[in-house]
Nucleic acid binder design. Structure first.
Lengths: 363, 363
DNA sequence: ATTAGCACTCGGAATGTGAGAGTGCCAGCA
DNA sequence: TGCTGGCACTCTCACATTCCGAGTGCTAAT
C-alpha cells in the first residue's frame, strides 16, 4: 500500500521537526515549515490518516504527533535525504583520524570518541572476532631465568609474554623449543593444540621443566584472545543530555547494558552488507535497547577483518546526519587500516604498524 | 578545640543515619537510634551547637541535619569504626582476583569492576606513570619486507611492533641494526634519543632506507607510552542510582569528567603513604568533583610501581565499608602483583607474566 | 544540666484553576 | 470530491493556593 506524495512530505516534516525540537509537532507547525499549498485543516486530516496507518503517534489527545518506530523506519528507508558533511566536518574527521594511530585498540577507542563527539551520542566500536592461527614462534633468551615468547599470529597480530623461571635454562634449549613449536604448532587451529601434541613436543624437546606447557598455554591464551574480538564504548554520559533519558533509571538501564562488552558483541546481530545499518527502537534484540536506536557503519580493518563503529541514541535521532558522519569515519578507517593498496610511504607504515603490550615481571 | 564525647556520639549517629537513608535526620530519630540517656530536646541543643561548629548543616529551617563536608572529614578521621568484611565478601574478592589475571590491563579493569560491584559506585584504577628506558632490542626477520621490533623496557614491559616495508631488506641488515640499537639506545632516558644520535646510528648502519628512523620512532613512542600510565573507569552509570545524582546534568558533569583519563591521572594529587585515602567533596582539586567523594587504596604493582584503585560517589558515602573493601582488594592485588616473594610455582608464573598485543599488517 | 511543652517556620504534597495548544468535525466552497 | 475556515472540545502543563507535618528554637520547670 502506497502513500501519497503529500503524506510523505508531511511525515518527513514531522520527523524532521521532532528530531529538531523533541516536541510533538502540530498541524499548524507543519503548515508553516513545509510549504505544501494547503491549510492546517487539510494537514490535520492527513495526520490522522498517517496515525491510523501507524506511522505517527500522539502522546495524548491534544498534543501534536510524534513519529512511531514504524514512522522512523519509513523515514530512514525512503524519506531521509542523505546529508552531506560540511567542509569543516570532513576536515575535523580527517585530521583526527590521521593524528595518532599508534595502537589498534587505541585507534578504535579514539575513533569511537571522535564519533561520539561529532554526533553527541555514546559511541561504540567493535572489532569482529576471528579465529586465528599461530604463524611463527620466536623465543628470545634474555638471561638464564628469563625469556620472551613472541608469537606472530595469522592475522598479523603480534603477541608477547615475558617469562620468569624459578630455575635456569640454556639458550640452546630455548632455541630447540622454538624450532619445535614452529614445526608443530604453526598454522593449526586452536583446538588441535591438544595435550597429546603438547606432551609429544615435550618429549621431543627433552623438556623436564615444563617449559613446553608454559609456551603452549600462552599460545592457547593468545589465540583465544584474538578470537574474542574487542568492544569499546565511550561517552556513555552524553546520553544524559538527551531529554528522553532524563529519567536516571532509564539512562542507567541503557548505559549499564552498554558497559558489558558481552552484550555489545551480540548487538549487531547477523551482518548485512549495508554500509550503514540503522536499528530502530523495538527492532533491537536486546530488551534494554527497545527505546533506543543504534546506527552503525562497518569498516575494513585489514587482514580480511571488518570492524563496526556506531552510536546509540534516542529514537529521535538525527539519522541522516549521524549516518553521514559514521559513514565518513568508517571510510577513513578503511582507508587507514584496510588492505588493498600498498603502504605508500613512511608515515603510512608507521600508522599501520604496531601494537604492543606490557608484561610485568617479578623483580 | 575538643568536642564532648556526647557530641561525637551524636555526630556519628547523624552521619551513619544519613548515609543509610539519604534523608536529613532530626533530633527524635537520633534519640531513638543512639541510646544516650537523654531526650530529643537535649539532642536539639547539641545539634545546634554542632551546626554552629560547622559539622552539620540544615537544608532549611524545618528539616533535620545533614553532615557538612567538615563533618564527614571528622567522621572519617575520628569516629568511623573500621569495618570488617564478612566471610562471603572476602571469599568473593579472593575468588574474583585469582580467577584470571592474564593481562595486566585486563587485571586492572577487572579489579575495578570488582570494586565497583562490591561498593555500588563507579570505580577507577590508575597505574602510576614511570619513566622507563629500553633494556634490550630484538629485531625478528620475517621476510624480505617484514620484521618485528621487540623492545624490552627497564620495567620489564615488552612492547612489539610489526613493520611492513615497501622495499626489501636483508636479514644481515636487520641484525646489524639490532646490534647498534642495543649498543646505543639501551639504558638511556627518552630525552637522550636525539636526532643526532639517530642519524649517527643511521650512518653507522649504512641505512639508506630509513629503517633506523622507524625503529627509533617506535622506541620513543613505546617509552612515552609507558611513561603515561594507564587509567580505567568502570560502572560510571551506577552513579545514577544515587539520589544525589538524580539530576542528569550533575551526573553528566561528573561522569564526563571521569571519562577523561587525563583528568584521572591528576586526581590523586600528591601521594601520601596512607593505605587508604579519602577525599571529601570540596577537598577535591577538580571543580567537577566538589560534591563527590573519592576513596582510593594503593597497591604494589610490582617492579617498584604502585597503582591505585578507588571509587567515586556522593558525599554521603559509606566510607567505612568502602574503605574496608578497597583495602582488601588492594592487598589482594599487591599479593598477586607485588615484588618480594619469588614465584612459587607454575600457575604463579603464568599469572604474573604476560601481556601482549596486536599488530595490524597490511596484507 | 536536662526536659517537656509550645509556638513558629518552612518545604512538599495535594488540590484547584486557567491558559494554550491541538484535535476532530462540520458546513461551505471550488 | 477535496480543501478550507471555524468552532467546540479535550487534555496537559504551569501556576497559585492550601494544608499538613516534621523539626526547630525557646522558655519555663525540674
Amino acid at each position: 500500500m502506497d502513500i501519497s506524495p503529500r503524506k510523505k512530505k508531511i511525515l518527513a516534516a514531522v520527523v524532521d521537526e521532532y528530531i529538531r525540537t523533541a516536541e510533538p509537532v502540530g498541524s499548524k507547525t507543519i503548515a508553516a515549515i513545509a510549504d505544501l499549498g494547503c491549510s492546517s485543516a487539510t494537514i490535520r486530516n492527513e495526520l490522522s490518516e498517517l496515525t491510523a496507518l501507524g506511522y505517527l503517534e500522539q502522546p495524548h489527545t491534544s498534543a501534536g504527533r510524534i513519529p512511531s518506530p514504524h514512522g522512523y523506519r519509513f523515514y530512514v528507508n525512503e524519506l531521509m535525504e542523505r546529508q552531506k558533511l560540511s567542509i569543516e566536518e570532513t576536515e575535523t574527521i580527517n585530521q583526527r583520524l590521521n593524528q595518532k594511530m599508534e595502537q589498534l585498540d587505541r585507534l578504535m577507542s579514539d575513533a569511537g570518541r571522535l564519533a561520539g563527539q561529532l554526533t553527541g551520542y555514546p559511541a561504540l566500536t567493535l572489532s569482529a572476532p576471528r579465529a586465528a592461527t599461530a604463524k611463527r614462534f620466536d623465543l628470545l633468551y634474555i638471561d638464564a631465568n628469563t625469556f620472551i615468547i613472541v608469537l606472530l599470529l595469522g592475522n598479523n597480530t603480534v603477541k608477547n609474554k615475558l617469562v620468569h623461571l624459578p630455575f635456569s635454562v640454556e639458550q640452546g634449549q630455548i632455541q630447540k623449543l622454538a624450532a619445535l613449536f614452529n614445526a608443530g604448532f604453526t598454522n593449526i587451529p586452536e583446538e588441535e593444540i591438544t595435550p597429546v601434541l603438547i606432551s609429544a613436543t615435550e618429549r621431543a624437546a627433552r623438556d623436564t621443566m615444563g617449559l613446553t606447557s608454559i609456551i603452549a598455554a600462552y599460545t592457547i591464551e593468545a589465540l583465544s584472545q584474538s578470537r574474542e574480538g574487542a568492544a569499546f564504548v565511550t561517552g556513555e554520559s552524553s546520553l544524559l543530555r538527551q531529554p528522553e533519558f532524563r529519567d536516571p533509571d532509564k539512562a542507567h538501564r541503557v548505559i549499564s547494558y552498554l558497559s558489558d562488552s558481552q552484550h555489545l558483541m551480540g548487538l549487531p546481530g547477523k551482518a548485512t552488507d549495508d554500509s550503514v545499518r540503522v536499528i530502530i527502537g523495538p527492532e533491537n534484540v536486546a530488551e534494554e535497547l527497545r527505546d533506543s536506536s543504534v546506527v552503525m557503519a562497518s569498516y575494513d580493518a585489514g587482514a580480511g577483518q571488518r570492524g563496526l563503529i556506531g552510536v546509540v541514541g534516542p529514537l529521535r535521532m538525527d539519522y541522516s546526519a549521524v549516518a553521514a558522519k559514521l559513514q565518513y569515519i568508517a571510510d577513513g578507517l578503511s582507508r587507514l587500516l584496510g588492505a588493498g593498496e600498498a603502504p605508500a610511504g613512511f608515515g603510512k607504515m608507521i600508522l599501520k604498524g604496531d601494537i604492543s603490550d606490557d608484561e610485568h615481571g617479578t623483580d
